[in-house]
């Protein structure tokens, strides 16, 4: 998936393993912390052999999406949901289909699958605009 980290995608060593594909629940989501310490700042969603990753930051007011550890999807697993104000996002694209930030998108994290391992960029530089931040009450 293209994104702010596209410049690192040419060199294989620019990616590091995150976990095994089989460690991710098929159809489910899991949050991770890119620094290894602190709260989860990105999450991945697996569907079969496909994994997508997004920054854990709602375009509405810049907060984490999940209500508990790894709870980023609706019960049916069809949508990513921000549990602060109920925004729904398309899993494959991160596009907000309903809610305060309808028409905006989650910031994508490029993911590679190599020999059954989920790989993420060694250096994660979130978008230059940063997390959108609080835009106010609405």
């Amino acid at each position: 998936m293209a994104g702010a980290n596209e410049s690192c995608t040419d060199a294989p060593e620019a990616y590091r393993p995150l976990c095994g594909l089989d460690e991710l629940p098929d159809g489910g989501a899991r949050g991770f912390c890119s620094s290894g310490q602190g709260s989860d700042d990105f999450f991945v969603v697996r569907r079969g052999d496909t994994v997508v990753g997004y920054r854990n930051c709602c375009p509405h007011n810049g907060v984490a999406l999940e209500y508990r550890k790894d709870m980023f999807l609706n019960a049916a697993g069809t949508d990513i949901v921000c549990y602060a104000h109920g925004a729904h996002f398309d899993v494959a694209t991160g596009y907000c289909t309903y809610g305060p930030c309808a028409g905006e998108s989650l910031e994508a994290l490029p993911i590679r699958i190599e020999q059954g391992r989920v790989m993420i960029p060694r250096t994660i530089a979130w978008g230059s605009g940063g997390c959108p931040g609080n835009k106010g009450w609405s």
Binding site: A64, L65, Y67, M71, C82, Y83, A84
Partner: peptide, 8 residues
């Protein structure tokens, strides 16, 4: 807090 109720 975030919640499974559709709002905080």
């Amino acid at each position: 807090f975030n919640s499974p109720f559709g709002g905080a």
